[in-house]
Write a protein that binds this DNA or RNA. Structure first.
Length: 445
DNA sequence: GTTGAGCGTT
């Protein structure tokens, strides 16, 4: 294992950072010691100039001559103050200008995370791009991961049997066997990692082959038994146009952008608006369980492995609520929606979009995301944070096509500001990065 | 027969 010397400043004490087997240095390794660092540079002894280190998809690549004995210096993203200077603005690239002209975003949704991903992991990864105010795994994930579902139980298996058997893996804090007999049980461990480690396995308990898997959240989705079926197909409603499927965000982008409704003091009205329909299929027409939509989204997000981040935020303090009254009301206590940033309600819908597109990836949401972070993300091709080798290049079929059967939400996403013309694809007031670049990502102003 | 309760209601 080789180490390279890294310091925060040219005169600071340096830290030896371990390289990977292929000789690269992981950005995450750097971030672990220098939170927020986004790059590396070193003094080229020949020219006396500073030289940047190549960074591709989360890996620093050594100079042609190898890492050598240079002391590498951390580079930190420029934060704030850029947009204030007209001079700098003029010097900036068109892309930068474009981004500076749009309201900053501060919330990211991160999809496709492994179940094992911790908030610490999220924080560590994203600190390279700026201050991370909040990194949250939907709150029940931690709780739920302590509990496993035990399928194929037989009636002779008692709670004590299960407790005794599973105790060899770790402390069992609870065993639940539904009555009347339903051929399954839940076993809760003290240590989530123990629970996690057992998932997917078959075990023999008292001669019975049982199957252990993740416990699915219960009491979710507004009473649809916690599953994604229910009325997500949006049929049977009475119509009306406009309004996103979730309802509550107003029929058009407000002064603060399309998600203003979620950020404004007044609550969205989950019960009105019509429109909507389903995220996945060709549902048209309205209806559907408004109140349940947000929890459904949450459930989906969780099933995808969802995390939310708040970066450098400038949220309207305490205002708004996540997705309107209905959603909040319908959210089970374990969702603790209040703990989510405002943007989080909508990132959940981003999860829906990404899921509908069969993508795992990133979504950026919210109002004030630092452009530095965004451009960093762009520069890195929005590599999958969990696997920098896999950029999210999944194609995005049929989203921008102006399909009349497109889902209400996607249609809404594509509408032109103020016009409500759903056929104006890709003309919405927010960048259609997800569509145009094929990333599983959306950015909202 | 492979996904749980009740509390009491933002």
């Amino acid at each position: 294992m080789s180490y390279i010397l890294v310091s925060e400043d040219e005169n600071d004490e340096s830290i030896e950072l371990p390289c990977e087997e292929d000789g690269t240095l992981l950005l995450s390794t750097l971030s672990a010691q220098y939170p927020g660092a986004s790059g590396l540079k070193y003094r080229n002894p020949d020219s006396g100039a500073l030289r940047g280190v190549r960074l591709v998809e989360g890996r620093f690549y050594p100079p042609d001559a190898g890492w050598g004995n240079h002391v590498y210096i951390c580079v930190f993203p420029k934060v704030e103050n850029k947009r204030k200077s007209d001079e700098q603005l003029e010097n900036s690239t068109a892309k930068t200008k474009r981004m500076e002209n749009r309201p900053k975003c501060s919330d990211l949704i991160v999809l496709g995370l492994p179940w094992k991903t911790t908030e610490q992991d999220l924080r560590q990864y994203f600190e390279a791009y700026g201050e991370v105010l909040m990194a949250q795994q939907e709150s029940q994930a931690t709780e739920l991961s302590r509990k496993v579902f035990v399928g194929r139980c037989t009636e002779d298996l008692t709670a004590d049997d299960l407790r005794e058997y599973f105790s060899k893996y770790g402390e069992v804090t609870d065993v639940f066997i539904p009555k009347p007999f339903r051929a399954f049980a839940f076993v809760t461990f003290m240590d989530p990692e123990v629970a996690q480690s057992l998932c997917g396995e078959d075990h023999i308990v008292k001669g019975t082959s049982i199957h252990v898997s993740n416990a699915v959240p219960k009491n979710e989705s507004g009473g649809h038994h916690g599953r994604m079926h229910g009325r997500m197909d949006g049929r049977g409603g009475h119509g009306g146009m406009g309004g996103p499927p979730m309802g509550g965000f107003g029929s058009g982008p407000g002064p603060n952008g399309p998600f203003a409704g979620a950020q404004m003091p007044h609550h969205g009205n989950m019960g009105s608006g019509g429109g909507g329909g389903n995220m996945w299929n060709q549902g048209n027409g309205g209806g559907g369980n408004r109140g349940g939509d947000i929890p459904n989204l949450a459930a989906l997000g969780n099933s995808l492995g969802l995390g939310t981040l708040g970066i450098g935020g400038n949220h309207p303090g305490g205002q708004g609520n996540t997705g309107g009254q209905g959603g909040v009301n319908a959210a089970p206590p374990t969702l603790s929606m209040g703990a989510l940033n405002l943007g989080a309600a909508l990132p959940l819908s981003s999860a829906m979009v990404a899921a509908a597109l069969g993508q795992a990836g990133l979504g950026l949401f919210g109002g004030n995301f630092q452009s530095a972070a965004l451009s960093q993300a762009e520069n890195q091709g929005m590599a999958n944070p969990q696997n920098p080798h896999i950029p999210n290049t999944t194609s995005t079929p049929s989203l921008g096509g102006g399909n009349a059967q497109r889902s209400g939400f996607l249609e809404w996403m594509n509408q032109t500001q103020g016009s409500g013309d759903a056929n104006n694809s890709n003309q919405g007031p927010w960048p259609q990065r997800d569509v145009k670049q094929g990333f599983g990502m959306s950015v909202s102003p």
